[in-house]
């Protein structure tokens, strides 16, 4: 028995060194050399400042941006710092979920000035699993084009072109679902040269 305990302790220490230290260090080395950008979180940098990660949704409520899917964890942000990723975990007979679904649908319709009988895509009425889902469906993006174009004084065609550019079909033709990365699309929107909002006002700087 004592012998087994001693062997257990020695084995635990040895494997902590091999599987904990050596394995993690080697894998980090490989990743930092081969896939440096992905390894550090696929960060988006603008004017020398980190403004987000390609994979994490941010909250957008303004009319001049595309909106992401509803989040049960305020997109991982809060007044006291990080908030853990989370879904709503509300069940199929939950009254709270029923209310959320109704509210999300009517907010999407009124926010985008859509006809009241519009079928809102399911991804915009239901909260995502992580609360950080970076993608929306192409349909959900299309329904927002007119609003964003109007708010930015851009032509709808120009915004539609951009949405199409950021629409990814199923990966390699068959894996997963078609999707649009909202944060990347909004960053690209900001980079589009903004036309003069009015004759007299000086042209604002792009970006």
């Amino acid at each position: 028995m004592i012998k087994l305990i001693v062997q257990s302790i020695r084995q635990t220490i040895l494997w902590s060194l091999i599987a904990g230290v050596a394995y993690t260090l080697v894998m980090t080395g490989i990743s930092q050399v081969l896939f440096r950008d992905q390894a550090n979180g696929s960060l988006i940098v603008r004017d020398g400042k980190i403004i987000g990660s390609k994979w994490l949704a941010q909250q957008f409520t303004g009319t001049n941006y595309f909106w992401p899917r509803p989040s049960a964890c305020t997109y991982g942000t809060g007044p006291s710092g990080i908030v853990a990723s989370s879904g709503s975990n509300l069940g199929p007979t939950s009254g709270a979920l029923q209310t959320n679904v109704m509210n999300n649908a009517s907010a999407f319709i009124s926010g985008n000035n859509l006809p009241t009988n519009t079928v809102v895509p399911a991804d915009m009425v239901y909260a995502s699993a992580s609360g950080l889902d970076p993608h929306i469906s192409p349909e959900a993006a299309r329904l927002q084009i007119a609003r964003v174009a109007a708010a930015r004084g851009l032509s709808e065609d120009k915004v539609r072109e951009l949405v199409e550019k950021f629409t990814e079909s199923a990966q390699w033709g068959f894996l997963g679902q078609p999707r649009v990365n909202v944060l990347m699309l909004n960053v690209a929107l900001d980079q589009l040269a903004t036309p003069k909002p009015a004759e007299t006002a000086p042209a604002p700087k792009a970006g």
Partner: peptide, 21 residues
């Protein structure tokens, strides 16, 4: 790793929100 799963020892990064609230 190739597809985008992080692998680093750095602390959590802080991003400035595009739309603070």
């Amino acid at each position: 790793m190739w597809q985008g799963v992080p692998q680093t020892w750095k602390p959590y990064q802080t991003a400035s929100l595009m739309e603070p609230y």
